[in-house]
Every structure is written in C-alpha cells, then in structure tokens.
Amino acid sequence: MNAINVVLTSSDVTVDGFCMSRCGTHGSSKGNVQVKGKNYKFAYIWVGNSETQCPGQCAWPFHQPIYGPQNPPLVAPNQDVGMDGMVINLASLLAGTVTNPFGNGYYQGPVDAPLEAASACPGVYAKGAFLGYAGDLLVDPTTGASYNANGANGRKYLVPALFDPSTSSCATLV
C-alpha cells in the first residue's frame, strides 16, 4: 500500500495505557490485508494528546517534567504545548516506522523493547543536551520559543535527534 496510517488522539479522548512509558506507538498489520486480490502489509502510528495525558512525560520540554531536574519548561514554537508535544512524538514514531516498519528492520536491543532511531536518543534535541536539558536550541527572538527545525510558511518545530549508526551517536539538526 506504500502508506503509513497515522492516528492523532483528540484532547477529549482518554487512551488506556497511554502513560505507561509511551506517548504513542507504531506497528503494522498482523497479517496481510487484501486489496483487489493483492496481499499487503501496512504500518501505522498512533500519537496521544500530550497536553491532556501525561504532559510532564509527553510534552517535555514544553511542560514541567514529571521526573528529573525541574527546570522551567521551554516556550512551544507554535504556542500550543499539546500540539508541539505531539509533533515531537510523531517525528520520533515516524523515524521508527520508516526504519523498522514491521519489527524486523533497524533497531537495537531486544525485539520486545527495541531502541529505534529516535528512542535511542531520549531528550536530545540539540548539541550539548543532557538529562533535563534539551540542548543548545535556536530561540525565536520575537516569541522566545525554542526550536531546531524550520517548516513551511515560517513555522518552527522541535524534532528529536536520531541515532546515527555510522558515528554511534545522536545526530541533531542544530
């Protein structure tokens, strides 16, 4: 099918198990799906609303963290903690889906708890990152928002670092 199905959860939807050390998930069909007589597998991503459920875990660094250093949260680049948190989680899951769509692609560690391209670099968004500090991010001089990626129409985003197997380190945009 050459597609990734993405589900974003609305703020008024509560998802059972959401806060159990995950802010979303990705996976694939258990079997083949038949379309016009051909068998296909498909990949999917689900991202929960990070402002209403577990914001200290799923919207960090734009929300006060649950654990670790209690530094003030950063200003969200699009002025929406929930959606900017979801962008981080979507980017992380998209990287995992592209590199490990069916559970037999690129990952480190055990298959039942793999470290994937972005999950191998938790909390790293820019050079100089360490526990509780997202790194030396760009800051919008007008809004004070922190970001590391520029999008269309002047939008700014914060996306996670990805593990680079050629250097065995986390690669950041800034």
Rank of each mutant, 00 (worst) to 15 (best):
P55H: 11
G17K: 09
G82W: 02
Y44C: 07
F102N: 10
V124N: 07
N71C: 00
M86F: 04
A118K: 04
Q34M: 13
K30L: 09
G103Q: 04
Y67K: 03
Q53E: 13
N49T: 13
G85R: 04
K156Y: 05
V7Y: 09
T167E: 01
G105Q: 05
N100Q: 05
G154P: 14
V33W: 12
A152W: 07
I88M: 09
Y147W: 02
G105N: 08
G68N: 03
S92V: 00
A120D: 08
P55G: 11
V87S: 01
V111Y: 04
G103C: 09
L8S: 03
A113F: 09
Q57R: 12
D112H: 06
S50R: 14
P61T: 01
S11E: 14
M86S: 02
Y157R: 06
F102D: 08
G109S: 02
G24K: 04
A95V: 04
C121H: 04
Y125W: 05
A171L: 11
V35I: 15
E51S: 15
S168Q: 12
V35N: 11
F62D: 02
Y125Q: 08
G135L: 05
Y147H: 01
K127D: 15
I4C: 09
L90V: 10
N89F: 00
V81R: 03
N71K: 14
K30A: 12
W46I: 13
P141E: 03
G103M: 06
P69C: 03
N100C: 06
G128K: 01
A59Q: 04
Y147M: 02
R155E: 04
A3L: 11
G48N: 13
C54E: 06
P114G: 08
N32Q: 06
D16S: 13
K36P: 00
G68L: 01
P165W: 06
T25Q: 15
V35T: 12
P69H: 06
Y157F: 09
Y40F: 10
L137H: 00
Q64G: 05
G151S: 09
L138W: 09
G37Q: 03
S21F: 15
H26L: 07
G48W: 08
C23R: 06
P72V: 00
F62K: 03
P65L: 02
V111E: 10
G123R: 05
V87T: 07
G31T: 14
G17P: 07
D80T: 12
F42W: 12
L162H: 05
T167H: 01
T99E: 08
T14H: 13
S11F: 03
Y147K: 00
T99Q: 07
A171V: 10
Q53C: 02
P101F: 12
V7R: 12
S166T: 10
P72C: 00
V15N: 14
N100R: 04
G103H: 04
Q70E: 01
Y133A: 03
G24I: 12
T52K: 15
N78E: 07
L158C: 02
V124F: 01
Q34T: 15
Y147R: 00
F42A: 09
G151L: 03
Q34N: 15
V13K: 13
D140I: 08
I4T: 11
A117V: 13
V159H: 00
D80K: 10
P55E: 08
S168K: 15
G85M: 08
V98F: 07
S11P: 13
S21H: 11
S92P: 02
G144Y: 00
Y133F: 10
